[in-house]
Design a protein around this nucleic acid. Structure first.
Lengths: 76, 76
DNA sequence: ATGTGACTTCAAGTCCGTG
DNA sequence: CCACGGACTTGAAGTCACA
């Protein structure tokens, strides 16, 4: 699994769980709307500072954006 | 805490725990010697694909390199 | 609301070296 | 073995018009 793709999926999933549009996430993170779009599609190769901005906006740890497993697959 | 600094500390700590020199890590990860040096000092802003290469070489999950807490400070 | 190609600017990443 | 600098090439950052 390409890690850029993984980051894109994670960002998109968490963003949607917040009920946000790409535009809203763009605003919250201080990044451009189309840049968010590119990241979610795995077309971009973001740096750690960008991951940080995204993670802060989404309210998760930066490492969460690189994780393989979805969110918490709650295995009780 | 600047995330670049955090990445640098994590990489350095894990690398040393493997008993590797920067050159060895450079070889294992396919990156350049001086670039590893720059990352460990927090002077560089690596991309997710680089994090992946480093994580693979070090045998940890990519998210580990962004974590705040050291490794496992085993608090029993 | 989002995907996409094109674009400019600046840093990612390589390679040479020095102390 | 590592920190650090300079010069270089490639690609990321950041933005736009349009579909």
């Amino acid at each position: 699994m390409d890690i850029r793709r993984q980051v894109g999926l994670n960002v998109q999933r968490i963003r949607r769980s917040r009920g946000w549009s790409q535009e809203e996430l763009a605003f919250e993170s201080g990044l451009h709307r189309t840049y968010i779009s590119g990241i979610e599609r795995g077309a971009r190769n973001p740096t750690v500072t960008v991951l940080r901005a995204l993670a802060d906006a989404l309210g998760v740890g930066p490492g969460r954006l690189l994780d393989d497993g979805p969110p918490e697959t709650a295995s009780p």
